[in-house]
Computed example of a mutant assay.
Amino acid sequence: MDTSSLENPMPITVVDSSVVKADEPLIVLADSLKPALDTITPAPAKISMTYPPLHRDWRRLGYTTSMYLGATVIAFGVLWVMPESATNWDKEEIKEKGLLWKWKENVKAGPVWDEDDWVLNWITHPYCGGIYYMTSRSAGFTAWESFGYSAIMSTFFWEYGIEAFAEVPSIQDLIITPVFGAMVGEGFFLAKKSILKHDKKVLKSRALGITTLFFMDPFNTILDGFGYKDRVKTQMNIAPVGVNQFTKSPVWGVQFSASF
């Protein structure tokens, strides 16, 4: 048996005998990650407006309902200066006996079948009912909840409230305003969703779009114009969230935050 290969082994030349420490590869790895981390910047926060809101915005509804108070005073003034042939209001009796007395008498006498002009009964009241409906619908409430809001507003706020100072509550108005108003209002709701989806434009015109929004939902449009919006700020970025205990390599993850 030839044992020369065992007796005369080939010489091994060591070029670099420096000892490599166990933690140096980790240092090199960490240094190599610095450029990558520097190039990753957090995504800018995005502001999104969801229509309708995902939650019931009671504060918005409170603001818009309060705006009705001022608008109703103006509406009452407009009706007061209109001829009695259009409103059927007995202004002389109101002036003589006072508003509060007239309100009590009208509430006791109603409701009755009125003889108002067809424009008031079949155009104005359904439109007003649609505005009531949209005030609630645009604040995140459901169709049935918005119908209920319209019924309450048209019955107690207007027929047995403001208008009762001048005339007896109307049977037609108690029915037409909330029922037909809900139909008109849901049409307004779908139209508003479409307009907002197209960047508040109608026929590629922003002015026409905003005018249409005001016509369909005046109080919410005014409120949004003053900066009140249902905003959700979101931010997303990519960053190391830990270290793999076996490979000692960083574990990457996505960080997401939202503020309401």
Rank of each mutant, 00 (worst) to 15 (best):
L54G: 04
T142Q: 05
P44L: 12
P44Y: 01
H125Q: 13
K248T: 05
K233C: 00
L37P: 05
G129Q: 03
K204F: 15
D38G: 15
D2Y: 10
F226R: 05
V73H: 02
M236A: 07
K108P: 00
A239M: 14
M236H: 01
I238S: 01
E24Q: 14
H125I: 03
A22R: 10
G110T: 07
V78D: 02
V81C: 11
Q235L: 12
D217T: 10
I210M: 12
P83C: 06
A71R: 08
G148W: 01
V112Q: 09
K21T: 10
S5R: 08
P169S: 07
T234K: 01
G253Q: 13
Y133E: 01
G227K: 07
S18D: 05
L61Y: 06
K193H: 08
L6C: 00
K201V: 05
F147P: 04
V184N: 02
K248M: 12
K201T: 10
E159T: 02
W58F: 13
T211F: 15
N106S: 06
T124F: 09
S146K: 10
T65S: 11
P240L: 01
S18Q: 13
S48P: 03
N8Y: 12
G181P: 08
S136M: 09
G225C: 04
G110E: 05
P250M: 11
K91R: 13
D199K: 08
K108D: 08
L33H: 13
K192N: 09
W80Q: 04
G140L: 04
Y133V: 07
T247V: 08
D224T: 10
L223I: 10
R60F: 10
K34N: 03
Y228K: 01
F219D: 05
G187L: 12
